[in-house]
Design a protein around this nucleic acid. Structure first.
Lengths: 134, 134
DNA sequence: CTTGACTCTGGACCCGGGTCCAGAGTTCAG
DNA sequence: CTGAACTCTGGACCCGGGTCCAGAGTCAAG
């Protein structure tokens, strides 16, 4: 069997059936070819495309961004693909930097906290402003 | 005036009025003190707390996570505060690791891409298409 | 042929994190 | 005093990215 039902495709890619239909509805996947019964059938190309979508998602691309990538790839514009990847890379770097900043702040608080004694001596508490809601 | 109206507070923190009410509804901010008219008034503690929330959000914490951070101050034991802070630190480290993995994958693709020529020469496309690297 | 598993559709619903609205009351500068 | 600007409430709505449902039709193993 070189074609797959939607359930088989979903299983292979590790995604829900509803997700595939959702991707079709939102234009990420072309409308599937149908059996006379109306059942969708998928071939190798659709499998590759769906895997492409999942991998791009795993790299942090949103669905609209994935769609852009797919369109770019069909236009054979290597330069713009590279630019998109570089922009996403810069995006990830920015997120990492931000996390590192809070990491260092939190780390220095943890290091300065004796771990015992009166609450007033805990610098973690001092760093938190205001009263907790009750 | 040492107290602020909700609009003034919103302006100072750079957030919408509705967001402040939303935070109050969802328990991140204690119910505001009210004027006889029912208008909310805010003091320095609330301002600090709201700034804390925005900073933590800007650093990628979800609202429930921010709430956890804030609730550290209501713990009785300094030791448990420290443990919670350490757990949050480990959490941040895990996130940074994940982002770094994505980052390295993307970076090597970007570096390997010539940035011009035919699509077949673009390793980014090949990687997304699930082809073995050559 | 029967039966259980699969698939179809349109639409509702979920979560997070807000954002906007109408209609009524309040505050304040001039 | 007046009018503009502000604030109140409850509820509706938005986006992203799915997820679930009912009721009807289809497929395939035994």
């Amino acid at each position: 069997m070189t074609t797959l039902s939607i359930g088989e495709l979903a299983e292979r890619v590790g995604v829900g059936i509803d997700t595939i239909r959702y991707y079709e509805r939102s234009g990420l996947l072309a409308p599937a070819t149908r059996l006379p019964s109306g059942y969708r059938r998928y071939g190798a190309a659709e499998l590759r495309r769906l895997l492409f979508i999942r991998r791009a998602k795993a790299l942090g691309f949103s669905l609209p961004e994935v769609q852009e990538l797919l369109e770019l790839s069909s236009r054979k514009s290597v330069a713009s693909i590279k630019r998109a990847a570089e922009a996403k890379l810069a995006d990830i770097d920015r997120r990492i930097d931000e996390l590192n900043q809070i990491r260092h702040g939190l780390e220095s608080l943890v290091e300065a906290c004796p771990g015992h004694g009166r609450a007033e001596a805990c610098p973690i508490l001092h760093a938190l402003a205001g009263e907790a809601p009750r």
